[in-house]
Design a protein around this nucleic acid. Sequence first.
RNA 1: GCGCCCGUAGCUCAGUUGGAUAGAGCGACGGCCUUCUAAGCCGUUGGUCGCCCGUUCGAGUCGGGCCGGGCGUGCCA
Length: 580
Amino acid sequence: MSDPVKVLEAAFRDAIGAAFGSEYESHDPSLRASQHADYQANAAMALGKVLKKNPREVAAAILEKLNVEGVCDKVEIAGPGFINLTLSNAFLTRQVQALSKDKALGVVQANEPQTTVVDYSAPNVAKEMHVGHLRSTIIGDCLVRVFEAQGHHVIRQNHVGDWGTQFGMLIEHLLDMGEDDAAKELGLGDLNAFYQQARKKFDSDPAFADRARKRVVLLQGGDEATLSRWKVLFDLSAGYFQTIYDRLGVLLTKADIAGESFYNQLLSPTLSELEEKGLAKESQGALCVFPSGFAGREGDPLPLIVRKQDGGYGYATTDLAAIRYRLKTLKAKRILYVVGAPQSAHLNMVFQAAREAGWLTSEARVEHVPFGSVLGSDKKMLKTRAGDSVKLVNLLDEAVERASAKVAEKSKDLPSEEREAIARAVGIGAIKYADLSSDRVKDYVFDWDKMLAFEGNTAPYTMYACARVLGIYRKSDEADRAAGDEALVISAPEEHALAAALLRFGSVVELVGETLQPHHLCGYLYETASLFATFYQKCPVVKAGTSDADRRSRLVLCDVTARVLKHGLNLLGINVPGRM
RNA sequence: GCGCCCGUAGCUCAGUUGGAUAGAGCGACGGCCUUCUAAGCCGUUGGUCGCCCGUUCGAGUCGGGCCGGGCGUGCCA
């Protein structure tokens, strides 16, 4: 509502209807940000074609009926039929005053809240979290925050790998070690060593391998002693994941875990239903579903193997049970799978199978939210020098360490405790922002110097802008603050530009919810922070020599700017220090 | 072979769903601090949008065909 585009759109629809008949009211006014004015309307060209009229004449006819009294200062036709619109300062003043009173800062509450499942993160029990989990965790968490801000009912689902044949060897290794020692090792977070030792014994010691295989059978058979060992592994891992999530500042908790084991008892009902509906067929000794539209190497139908030759269940079965549960039991209207791009084909097969089974209907929307890989400077998948995948803990440690060095250099005057807090916020924020600020589906190059830079579209730049606004506010007088929103008068060009940007916040959040592309929000925050920096340069606020009227007015603008930047960064999952 | 994704300035990336002269940051060069945070601001420099057709008033954007790279393509997830 605060967004000028929405006000202008309504005015244009009315004008187009009045000029050419109500059947044209639904015609898109095609309002865009413009380099030549605040906005431009491009509808006249398209309308000209439909009406078989000269676009400039169409534009003139629209203008004759267009009522933007009190909204625009200047409206003019340019080129082939562009309509350039310049917002009036009085309008911007009123709209920013309204925005200031709005706790949601222009983010519109959904009129029909949807139950939205977001499937993200998905680490593996008894295995280290590594860069491979980074993007899913960060992007998924951002989308969760955006949907919650829009008033949707969000159900987080952390589909952890906590079941399968590898647990035979893990449990045997646990028994060999003794639970106490295992707990010590896993509790400390050295999950890789635990897994690798188990793997090594499995590969080199036939007796151990044999025990492991028997243990799998016991586990699947529900043997209580075995299950309790499994539970130990699960709990230790879940506790470890939580330490990572807490450091990262994501919303996931143990309650959000609905891993492979969770779907265990749902596998056979899911299969029975698929068989009853004639969707599951015997093929090469396995039970398969062949969703339509997918072909293999020889052009033959591509299967989802729902029961392997050996009678075991694989990930396809679990994924089908999960989508069925989410649609039928959780009654999700929208399900997002924040999973890497390589799994696109598999997920689309699962979605198609769910359609054919009648679980997924037009009432619900299911989407794969794919993302590209994290690359090293060599443009290959990010790895350690030894060629191993990079542990998430190490990545976070290094981020905070590097940020600390910068903070120590730039914020010498602050107390050390505060500097540490700033370093954490900047380091973690930098990683998240780097991940969210470019097009999700593309691979991106992981570059410490770029993400921790204070120039450009980065977390530090935007956070710093926010800290500067707050600095002004801190130095202001109670009397000036008390003047409130009514003191606002937009007049300088820098104020005009900043105000216009602030009013777009709600629409940008909406765009992220639609496109599932958080980088739109990053781009917007960077732009707004930049506009603030220009404003900051040209328009003194609490500086000596500023008039009471300017100071009080600009204080309002600062307050709204700070709130927009802070709220925006929070939606990205980034905390903002009060000063830095 | 088939399917999906990617290709924009020397580098890293945007480009609001088809609009005007394709934008940022870095780099390079030049300016701006005796009080609101210079981790900043202002300016200059830099492009065959991989290539070719097509659709139309208009294409980086849509369609077709190539070229280059990545990923997937039946019992790992």
